[in-house]
Design a protein around this nucleic acid. Structure first.
Lengths: 192, 192
DNA sequence: TAAATTTGCTAACGAACGTTAGGTTGTTTA
DNA sequence: TAAACAACCTAACGTTCGTTAGCAAATTTA
């Protein structure tokens, strides 16, 4: 199933890989052009600036994460079930595109204002979704944990390393990874 | 208790803060000089190159992490107790110096060869310590987890986010954070 | 007090950077 | 078939980069 990419999408994809491996600042437009087999100046027929690429990747991924947990959220379920669903959704987005995820997680700080602030607000809103579920679980007595902020940071931290080692051809598929992680982390919340 | 720093140590410390906040590549020698109140060229009276600073920080931290788990390791103890000790030691190093920890965790990839390879070998040896404990715990039936590599990656991932939010003046001190995290993560390993 | 060391300066180097201007070629649309 | 567009080129711009050379002043050591 070959997907035909426009030149602009090719540039974005190649840049994403470079941004993941070397970082945004350490990737030059000449590096990127070289990888594409064209001249650096030619890239500017398709994009406005180097930062525009970063912006597009960061905000597209933010959207994907939001859509994933929105679709996965089941009302009228226990906090455990809801958190399990959110974790699974998060892991699926992470594993579906590890390179863009890495950029989303690490390179956003090179965004200039106002995009930088806007990104942080989005991220906070995303994390708030997890905090809300966790708070409910604490209130209902499902989770025994001193602080929901602390718990959520720990959970997301554990998840957000996946992009460094996940390979589609590895022995665990995304589903299994999600299940294992969700089980492990939920058990951690339940005990005292 | 004011510690008197040599000029070289001042440079290293200031550079570490900048490397954490903006990244190695996005920090220029002129930025660093400006922060120190001197000219960029003056820095070269004390160090050989920009990368030398990065090398010193990365390998000094690697040493600190090794020393911490070596001192903390208690033989003739259960895997749970040993892992608890290792987690606590790791967290203590992380919280004692969040800036150098951030550089250690994220900026090492800008090391050139052979330092880059040497660093990765050290990191692998460090993680092997955790894997060995976890393997033993699985064998002894203490931990119910499908794969020790997976478990260790998850544990260290959860720990290695601390530097982004930990503040010495926050409501949890390093000891409490370590205890909470160790409890949570160990419980995650024990259940099925 | 003489010598050595530390700490800083100004000036400048060559290289790399993101980006623009202006043009050519081939393909698609009206 | 003419016009519009997509995709790329060469050449060059102004800026910033890490770093070196050579020198000056202050402080420490012998």
């Amino acid at each position: 199933m070959e997907v035909i990419l426009s030149r602009k999408e090719q540039i974005e994809q190649t840049a994403t890989a470079l941004f993941k491996n070397r970082g945004f600042s350490a990737t030059s437009m000449r590096d990127l052009a070289n990888q594409l087999g064209i001249e650096a100046a030619s890239i500017y027929s398709h994009i406005k600036s180097k930062e525009e690429i970063l912006q597009r990747v960061c905000f597209r991924m933010a959207n994907e994460f939001f859509e994933a947990i929105d679709q996965a959220d089941v009302r009228n379920a226990s906090a455990s079930e809801r958190l399990q669903a959110a974790i699974t959704a998060h892991v699926k987005v992470l594993t579906k595109n590890t390179e863009a995820s890495a950029v989303f997680l690490h390179e956003w700080r090179h965004l200039s204002e106002p995009h930088h602030a806007e990104f942080l607000a989005l991220r906070n809103r995303y994390e708030e979704h997890f905090r809300e579920i966790t708070r409910e679980g604490i209130k209902a007595g499902e989770f025994k944990v001193p602080d929901e902020k602390f718990a959520v940071l720990t959970i997301l931290s554990a998840l957000n390393w996946i992009h460094t080692w996940y390979k589609p051809e590895g022995k665990m598929n995304a589903e299994e990874i999600a299940t294992n992680l969700a089980t492990m982390l939920l058990n951690g919340l339940k005990q005292t």
